[in-house]
Nucleic acid binder design. Structure first.
Lengths: 347, 347
DNA sequence: CCGTCACCTGACAACGTTGTCCAGGGCCTA
DNA sequence: TAGGCCCTGGACAACGTTGTCAGGTGACGG
């Protein structure tokens, strides 16, 4: 192996990576031949190929994909921007997107917008500068016109969990309105007339939809929502705690609560656990171990993995050339009864 | 604005992105001047800068970072390989790494190894081909010599949660041994002599360490572990269920169980909830809502966010030139008592 | 009025890869 | 044996950016 193949260049110094040129020199072949071997292209004699492989091995060569990208135009990577990588709701979504990307030979670059429109934009544009082939975005902002030049330039973009603002783009959503309506109706069906709603900031599309669903269900039942039954604007545990306390300690307290998302639900469960009088609860989003609590937490579950998978598949359809009009896919939610939502009103 | 600035090139066609050359032509300046404006370099007249900015705006130009990377050598991106993006344990770790990366102006590329050494290697090498500046890896395999050429070429690498195999590299770990020992000792201190251990595959470093901790605590107390008290090899709920059932239905059953990680704990909690006789439980890893169960689940908690932050900070120290010997950082665990671990033995 | 200097600006090469195209040689056929 | 074809291998340009360097312009001082 290490026979008398004199180097034409000095051994690359520490911190410098060997290039195809180095490999070619060492193997005594042309540059393009190395490229062919590395990419498994035909037209190389077994003997030549062996020599090249040995040189690659000896030098620890690894193709520089940056250069490759520059030449080929595609990066085989997609960007995923979500609200918070640490939120358990997004874990399965993230994973599902990754699986689809992997099946298409693409890598995943991702980041958290932290529910900050500026940070979302910064992140998205950074991904565009990296020339990701496509983007999957859980939008934090409400104006995505900044994406227009990118989309026109060919960056496939799919929004997930919430729709895009002020541009026409593919979106994959859960049926927040229908889910909240069904969840609230479930409480009403169990005899509740005084139902509270604790949601997130109503600028968030899903939060607004869920509020709308709650209102619709109450209206359907001919119930008038009193001021003080609705809390919006924050998922901060302390604030949610206060809001719940206020609803329960009012002169004429609510007998049931609809919680607008997983974070709110967890806090509400904690508050209710410390109360003597039972209060019914239905939460949006499933929670781990919800079945083991006493009572089990009844939830309107959405399928985050399907959300992610559907969005990613749509994205790759686009990348494969699908050019039909942007569409909005709405996935159904599922009511899972576990006890907390079936408690009768206590007075 | 849109005055008579004749184009020197035709408008780029759909799907093609404008380059600095296009911008330069449109603004009637040189290529390098555009580069200067884009990068905020000094030495450009306000008037020239304005013209360039207008051209950038009009064309929707965005710098191609692939080309930039090729020229500059650094990608301002780091790779993170974990076991499963969907595992709630890794969410905070992921997020912490992202925050540190963001503070250093780097993007995060990440993927799941799915506990498969081959897939880990594939992913890591793909990241190296992208020329990430650094790598943070939760290793699935036990031989990382394949990384030697990469590390020699300057890819900073930090292992997290588990150490590297067969190479000398930085690692940030939780004290699995100490935590398991303390957790088991806690059960023993509450009068248990017959304590079962349900763990993951013992080829996983943390799983082996936890088993070792359990054995050490039992030995410390002069207790002999009977065959049948230890279950290893899987976190599959059905198998764990069987294992727990076997321990509890044995002629001389265990009175307490130490669960080796969060997934196992959840399953064990489910099984115990269906049993009449109370069984004490301490689990490794904290679980959401563990405090609300009855009894609350006593756990040995590790701090995933700190794990991630520490690893990422170490990585950027390396990238900033730190060249000291690889070190192993071990973070302490914390026993959180909530009830399940303080149950007395039932006979 | 001219030299000097500071400041802008642009031409050019280089980063490492891949696509195009051509040269050379071996082999088959007429 | 000549002609032509196929197979292998290599030279060269191009991808879009940045670093280097040199040229050009205007101001200012002697």
């Amino acid at each position: 192996m290490a026979e008398s193949s004199r180097r034409l260049r000095p051994e690359p110094r520490y911190g410098t990576r060997p290039t195809m040129k180095d490999v070619a020199a060492r193997a005594g072949v042309g540059l393009k031949t190395v490229s062919r071997v590395v990419n498994g292209e035909p037209g190389v004699t077994p003997d030549t190929e062996r020599r090249v492989q040995e040189a690659i091995e000896a030098l620890g060569f690894r193709r520089n994909d940056s250069a490759r990208v520059l030449r080929k135009g595609r990066t085989a990577s997609i960007g995923l921007v979500i609200e918070d990588l640490a939120d358990p709701f997004y874990g399965p979504l993230n994973r599902a997107v990754e699986e689809v990307a992997r099946a298409h030979g693409a890598l995943l670059i991702n980041g958290s917008s932290a529910e900050d429109p500026e940070r979302e934009q910064e992140l998205v544009l950074a991904l565009c500068a990296r020339r990701v082939d496509g983007l999957i975005v859980v939008p934090a902002g409400h104006d995505h016109r900044y994406l227009e030049p990118e989309i026109k330039a060919g960056v496939a973009t799919v929004f997930v969990d919430r729709p895009a603002g002020r541009i026409d783009a593919d979106a994959v959503l859960s049926d927040s309105f229908g889910g909240a309506r069904a969840g609230t109706a479930h409480l009403v069906a169990h005899g509740h007339r005084r139902v509270g709603f604790i949601g997130d900031q109503s600028v968030i599309h899903t939060a607004a939809e869920r509020l709308r669903g709650y209102r619709a269900a109450m209206a359907d039942a001919g119930l008038v929502i009193e001021p003080g039954w609705i809390s919006l604007g924050t998922t901060d545990p302390d604030r949610v705690r206060e809001a719940v306390a206020a609803m329960l300690d009012a002169p004429d307290p609510v007998t049931a609560i609809f919680a607008g998302n997983n974070r709110v639900s967890v806090t509400v469960v904690r508050v209710l656990a410390g109360r003597a009088r039972p209060v019914a609860l239905v939460g949006f989003d499933d929670i781990e171990l919800a079945d083991l609590l006493d009572p089990g937490v009844t939830v309107v579950a959405q399928d985050a993995a399907t959300l992610g998978r559907t969005a990613a598949e749509r994205l790759f359809q686009r990348l494969d050339g699908a050019a039909d009009a942007p569409e909005r896919v709405v996935l159904p939610t599922r009511l899972i009864t576990r006890g907390s939502g079936e408690l009768p009103p206590a007075h």
